[in-house]
Design a protein around this nucleic acid. Sequence first.
DNA 1: TACAATGTTTTAAG
DNA 2: CCTTAAAACATTGT
Length: 264
Amino acid sequence: MPELAEVEYYRKQWDCGLQNKVQQVHLHPTKRIFRRTDTSALSAGLSGATLLGSEAHGKQMLFRFSGGAWIGLHLGMSGKLRVESSGFEPAKHDHFALRQARQTLVFSDPRQFGRVLFHSGKDEPSWWRDLPPRINSTEFTYSLFKEFIRRHRKAPIKAVLLLQERFPGVGNWMADEILWQSNVHPGKPPSTLNSAESKRIFENTIFVCAEALKTIGKDFSDPPPAWLFQHRWRKGAACPRCEAKLSHTTIGGRTSCWCKKCQR
DNA sequence: TACAATGTTTTAAG
DNA sequence: CCTTAAAACATTGT
């Protein structure tokens, strides 16, 4: 479920716990979200520590605690962050919870494709330092974009936009939105794109990310009604631009939504 | 029942 | 070594 803007929204849900001490750590060590994570070190490192800050980068989140403790969170397909009362008892899918004096910070993830990482040390973990440039940063340049789609010139452009090593935060609905706004068919390989199409995709990638952060990322409000986003999951969905019936097919291994009249 | 779900990793093949 | 495609992961809802 969560892409760039949804992740940013969920990250902020834990802001009310900033400057608060963790009294107790609740976790189920055998759950898949803790795969290859030392849960004993995690519990020990967070118990009694104060939450000092957090940051999102694409679909990843980093939370910083006093005493040089850090956790990385990924929400996978069904993960969510929320806040409950301090006396809250974790329910079935609440695999990770931090109890504080005034509230409990909860990570739930029914499908467990999400992830919890732990790092102990004075500096940021290496898995945070090595991330690619954010899409809404000056380092995300057209030449970087062009070089990347050239490398992946034979795969469907939809599949290329889903690669986190260049488009951190872009997920299934955002990739469809970018291509719909660019009037480009999701199945087209980059080798068949002309320079105008390529430029439109680059610019709309930045635009869709920025707008999503201003709406969904801010308070989970809807992006503009003229976007594909509002229409794609409706029964008998129609293109908000030309009113033609929208197509749904598997492209790049994911269900894709596109307008066969607008996108070629 | 069977399949799909806003994601990533592993495996295999070219 | 690189790119691409498909299966696997765990659970719920239609």
